[in-house]
Nucleic acid binder design. Structure first.
Lengths: 150, 150
DNA sequence: GAGGTTACTGAATTTAATTCGTTCATCATA
DNA sequence: TATGATGAACGAATTAAATTCAGTAACCTC
């Protein structure tokens, strides 16, 4: 991981579909050498993959919510059960176990408030071990690049 | 936006660098027609772009934190000032204005707890209009695909 | 049912990715 | 200081993919 690799990562983070040819020009290296570096970054797992960034509004997913979840600390398997259950719920794009006043922070996208009420009642509150939830609806996405600072 | 477009979006979300040829095979369409659809999705903004997904740990950004921010509601320009200031801070990957007990929810990545303490003191608490912050450090990323449910 | 629009196909062409033989620099070791 | 191994780079040749385009079918609209 030298400076050249870093330049590659910066570019690929900004444009995951840049051609190898253009990338090689930007970092002042031959196409063959550039490709070799990119492949190595992929194989070592530094580059985990590539994805298209889609517009949530265009796809009828205009409402973004964060949900704080507190679990029942009764049985020892509660956290595992909850984690497993989370993974198969498509609306949930992120779920983090956090230290602090609650247990999990969930990021989810739904069509509108109506859809969320339904999602909360039919899906979230029926998850194993849930004691309490707290919802914060997003009014404005001030920043949302999902890029790492390199 | 028909079912074929939807299939395209599903595939491109999973693998933003799939070749047009393979994509066309997966959706049972000719390469030319497939390309035309992808271009249209890009032009209409449904596809906003493409990005490489990088491994935070490999890049020395092992600590993920969420910060709840409450602003001083004194002057009317406070929210704009804050929003503008946020955008240039590389550690902040997301910032959302939320309805509820606080004003903004920030997602940030730093090297470790030491780096976070520094970030909080030197950067966050010096932003315009901040009254209070509340930090939640992530212990485990249970789910993190950043994909939209299609 | 004529005219216009849209989306598709398949072939031809352009462009990019990939492979490979070679060179150069670095570095540890005899 | 030679020697040989290693890693990274280049450039040319090859393979594969993207792109363009002419022609056709389906579908509206009037």
């Amino acid at each position: 991981m030298d400076d050249v690799d870093k330049k590659i990562l910066v570019r690929l983070q900004q444009d995951g579909r840049i051609t190898n040819l253009e990338l090689s020009r930007l970092i002042h290296l031959s196409p063959a050498a550039t490709l070799e570096r990119v492949r190595k970054l992929e194989q070592t797992g530094i580059i985990r993959g590539y994805m298209a960034k889609l517009d949530p509004d265009a796809l009828q997913l205009g409402l973004l919510v964060f949900v704080q979840v507190t679990l029942d600390r009764t049985s020892p398997g509660i956290f595992d059960d909850f984690s497993k259950a989370i993974k198969s719920i498509p609306q949930i794009s992120e779920c983090h176990m956090v230290a602090g006043g609650f247990d999990y922070l969930i990021k989810a996208r739904v069509r509108d408030m109506n859809a969320y009420r339904n999602f909360l009642g039919k899906t979230l509150t029926r998850l194993p071990g849930i004691r309490q939830t707290h919802t914060y609806t997003v009014m404005e996405e001030v920043k949302s690049n999902n890029e790492l600072p390199l």
